[in-house]
Simulated scan of single mutants.
Amino acid sequence: MRSFIAIDTGQQVQMMIESVVEKLKRMGFRASWVPGGNSHLTISFLDSVELQRLELLATMLSKRLRGFPTFTLETGKLGYFKHKELPKVVWIGIERNQTLSNLHREVRSVLESMSFPVEDNFRPHLTVGRMKFSPPLWHKFLETIETEKIVFQVNEVSVFESILSREGAKYRKVFTCSFEGGLIKHDFQG
């Protein structure tokens, strides 16, 4: 099961991402766009993991995060990762937040204890699209897009499955670990 650990961003952020995607399309950008309903803040990629191991990971995460404080995050500016002087991924940033860094450290600790590979560089962002074509003057176009500052609450993390298809990736929650304690196993056919 291709999977990752992430924070669900909520409906207001989803609608803002859909608005940014529409603006980019009108400017001539072509990409594998992230549907607003798929918006999430990735804490860690897991790659392919068997369901039983994923359930053990979710159980350990749930125990480790019990009592973690609820906190808020705020969306930031539009940004991008470049490859060969063109934007490869366009994203919306997340304002720096010490509690998010602490959460990442807790998740990383559980992953390391289970011998999962962990990424060294945590750059919190919300992916808008993976670029296939960028128009001339793309840099200037991106500078004109303003993003709404949205504050959203974080009181859980989820383990998602990533399902690849011709229409793009679809994400489905498999487990949710509430900071108040408790593990939710989501129903699915699999």
Rank of each mutant, 00 (worst) to 15 (best):
residue 2 R to P: 06
residue 3 S to N: 09
residue 3 S to G: 14
residue 5 I to N: 07
residue 5 I to S: 06
residue 5 I to P: 08
residue 8 D to S: 14
residue 10 G to P: 08
residue 11 Q to H: 11
residue 13 V to K: 04
residue 14 Q to N: 14
residue 18 E to G: 12
residue 21 V to L: 05
residue 22 E to N: 11
residue 22 E to A: 13
residue 23 K to N: 09
residue 24 L to D: 08
residue 25 K to Y: 02
residue 26 R to P: 00
residue 27 M to D: 11
residue 27 M to C: 06
residue 30 R to M: 09
residue 30 R to H: 06
residue 31 A to F: 03
residue 33 W to C: 05
residue 34 V to S: 04
residue 34 V to L: 06
residue 36 G to L: 08
residue 37 G to R: 07
residue 39 S to Y: 03
residue 39 S to T: 05
residue 40 H to I: 09
residue 40 H to C: 08
residue 40 H to L: 09
residue 40 H to R: 07
residue 41 L to H: 07
residue 42 T to W: 10
residue 43 I to D: 06
residue 46 L to K: 04
residue 48 S to F: 09
residue 49 V to E: 02
residue 51 L to M: 07
residue 52 Q to P: 09
residue 57 L to E: 13
residue 57 L to A: 12
residue 57 L to H: 12
residue 57 L to K: 11
residue 58 A to F: 13
residue 59 T to Y: 12
residue 61 L to M: 15
residue 62 S to G: 15
residue 62 S to P: 14
residue 64 R to I: 10
residue 65 L to Y: 12
residue 65 L to V: 07
residue 66 R to L: 09
residue 66 R to I: 08
residue 67 G to L: 07
residue 68 F to A: 10
residue 68 F to Y: 10
residue 69 P to L: 10
residue 70 T to D: 12
residue 75 T to P: 08
residue 75 T to C: 07
residue 78 L to G: 00
residue 79 G to F: 01
residue 79 G to N: 00
residue 80 Y to T: 00
residue 80 Y to R: 00
residue 84 K to T: 01
residue 85 E to N: 11
residue 87 P to Y: 05
residue 88 K to I: 03
residue 90 V to K: 01
residue 91 W to A: 14
residue 94 I to V: 15
residue 96 R to Q: 13
residue 98 Q to N: 15
residue 99 T to G: 04
residue 102 N to S: 14
residue 102 N to C: 14
residue 110 V to P: 12
residue 113 S to Y: 09
residue 113 S to N: 10
residue 116 F to R: 02
residue 116 F to S: 02
residue 117 P to R: 04
residue 118 V to R: 00
residue 119 E to K: 05
residue 120 D to T: 02
residue 120 D to W: 00
residue 124 P to T: 00
residue 127 T to C: 05
residue 128 V to Q: 02
residue 128 V to S: 02
residue 129 G to M: 01
residue 130 R to G: 01
residue 130 R to N: 01
residue 131 M to S: 05
residue 131 M to D: 09
residue 131 M to R: 00
residue 132 K to D: 08
residue 132 K to R: 11
residue 133 F to I: 07
residue 133 F to G: 02
residue 133 F to E: 09
residue 134 S to R: 01
residue 136 P to V: 11
residue 137 L to N: 12
residue 142 L to R: 02
residue 142 L to A: 05
residue 144 T to K: 06
residue 144 T to I: 03
residue 144 T to A: 01
residue 145 I to G: 01
residue 146 E to S: 08
residue 149 K to S: 09
residue 152 F to K: 03
residue 155 N to H: 13
residue 156 E to G: 07
residue 157 V to N: 13
residue 157 V to C: 13
residue 158 S to V: 13
residue 159 V to N: 11
residue 159 V to G: 11
residue 159 V to C: 12
residue 160 F to H: 11
residue 160 F to W: 12
residue 162 S to E: 05
residue 162 S to Y: 03
residue 163 I to Q: 10
residue 164 L to Q: 04
residue 165 S to Y: 02
residue 167 E to H: 05
residue 168 G to I: 01
residue 168 G to R: 01
residue 169 A to I: 07
residue 170 K to G: 00
residue 171 Y to K: 03
residue 171 Y to Q: 02
residue 171 Y to L: 03
residue 174 V to C: 07
residue 174 V to Y: 09
residue 174 V to M: 11
residue 175 F to C: 09
residue 178 S to C: 13
residue 180 E to G: 14
residue 181 G to Q: 06
residue 182 G to Y: 15
residue 183 L to N: 14
residue 183 L to F: 13
residue 183 L to P: 13
residue 183 L to E: 12
residue 184 I to Q: 15
residue 185 K to F: 15
residue 186 H to P: 14
residue 188 F to D: 07
residue 188 F to W: 15
residue 189 Q to R: 15
